[in-house]
């Protein structure tokens, strides 16, 4: 017993800090909220105020009419995700937040593409649609509207493939997600 000390020794050096986590990957947050006035504004306002960037956002009803689910994706390289979720939890109307594990999650997005397709390219476009298991839902003389459902990456890939034919416009819903297995998201 050289130095004065206490019987249970804990070296302060051993302590590690929980530094704001920047994971570097995309995060999908599934947020269960009460259907109350202004909920979406509160969440959007919080993100704007704290300088968090939302990549995609999708809102819709759940099996319970008093609740809605907000699915939003954000970049874990730009934001400490734990700070984002802790701030969200402070909103009184937010019931539950899940930061979905990519491997344990099924995520889908729906996209509509309006693509130039005259007689000469139509067959080629249709072939692309088939490969991506999309659907042509509207046809006019010089264009088609295509519906594609899939993961974020699949939609991105399809966009790259059809762009050379003349992408007139595109609309995407943003991903919605649900966890795999029996348990609730």
């Amino acid at each position: 017993m050289g130095e004065p000390g206490t019987k249970e020794v804990l070296s302060l050096e051993e302590l590690e800090a929980s530094v704001g986590l920047r994971t570097g990957r995309k995060h999908i947050l599934s947020i269960l909220v009460e259907n109350k006035p202004g909920v979406l504004t509160r969440i959007a306002g919080l993100f704007a105020r704290r300088g968090f960037n939302i990549d995609t956002l999708a809102v819709g009803p759940t099996d319970d009419p008093t609740l809605s689910r907000i699915t939003l994706t954000l970049d874990g390289a730009m934001h400490p995700i734990d700070q984002v979720t802790k701030q969200l939890h402070k909103l009184v109307n937010v019931i539950k937040i899940r930061d979905l594990e990519p491997t344990e999650t099924v995520a889908r997005e729906l996209a509509l593409f309006k693509v130039s397709a005259d007689g000469s390219t139509r067959a080629e476009v249709m072939q692309m649609v088939e490969i991506f298991r999309g659907k042509i839902i509207d046809v006019s003389k010089r264009s088609v509207i295509i519906e594609v459902t899939g993961s974020f990456d699949k939609i991105e890939a399809f966009e790259r493939m059809v762009r050379p034919f003349g992408l007139i416009e595109m609309a995407r819903t943003g991903e919605i997600a649900i966890s795999r297995g029996r348990g609730e998201t």
């Binding site: 590690e16 800090a17 929980s18 530094v19």
Partner: peptide, 15 residues
């Protein structure tokens, strides 16, 4: 009492 304050500005070792 506010979890969002912990490690907001200075990382905590024992929150």
């Amino acid at each position: 009492i506010d979890p969002a304050e912990i490690s907001k500005n200075v990382p905590a070792h024992i929150p």
